[in-house]
Amino acid sequence: MNTLRLGLLRGNIEIKQFMRQRESVIFTIFFPVLLLFIFGSVFKDTIAPGVTFSQYFVAGMIASGLVNSGFQQLAINIPIERDNGALKRLRGTPMSPIAFFIGKAILVFLSMIAQVAMLLFFGALFFHLHLPHSGALWLRFTWLVVLGSACSTVLGIALAGVIKSGRGAPAVVSPFVIVLQFISGVFFVFSNLPSWMQQFAALFPLKWLTQGMRSVFLPDSFAAQEVAHHWEVGRTAIILVAWLIAGTILATRSFKWSRQ
């Protein structure tokens, strides 16, 4: 059986396992929606003409969704699968590691779509999120999602390689993600942060993803409120591609099939 078909079969198995763990479904898909309702309902201030904080926040949460479904999910689950022997067992079979990663990518992609679709749906329904009004914006949205998930996936695999145990994984990964969300313009308006924090956040992909999502979901006039006074779409693409390449190299070096 060829690698691609096996990869699809792996994807099917990954999704079955994911869907049957109720906690993981809730944590990955519903938690962001819950956060959306809490933050969206509490902070309703207008932050610029025609833009409320809840609209700003939904754009940031969509970017965070890419981090949750790829980075967070893989960096937590791969160490668990390493501890329980799943990876070692797979390593002992003729299945190509490429098929394994295709399976993981399918899982990430589908859980990301589910999450983003929920955020778009509830965001549009309750928090005045405006869906992109032009083909060009939909196209930008699509490449942001694809590039963002790809980055998030390889970086999740890379971090999984250096996490020692499955039990400790959430304690390492979650603070990482939460801190990134605080400094990257999800929970706070990015331009209100101290400039040293802005500069630090700009080293990581999430800041660029939130900014990219704002360029898709907020009115064009809001670009003037950004730190650089425009959306920096080209720079976002370059930085995400750079992280994707670095993450792929790190992931292939750090990945381990068993604990030793």
Binding site: G85, A86, R89, T93
Partner: peptide, 26 residues
């Protein structure tokens, strides 16, 4: 290979797992 103690694939059924692994081999 039959490894020492494992606890993986807890959410899959016996039949799903054995059928799935059969696809790995020629």
């Amino acid at each position: 290979i039959v490894l020492q103690s494992t606890s993986d694939a807890a959410e899959l059924t016996v039949a799903e797992t054995v059928h799935h692994f059969s696809h790995y081999y020629t």
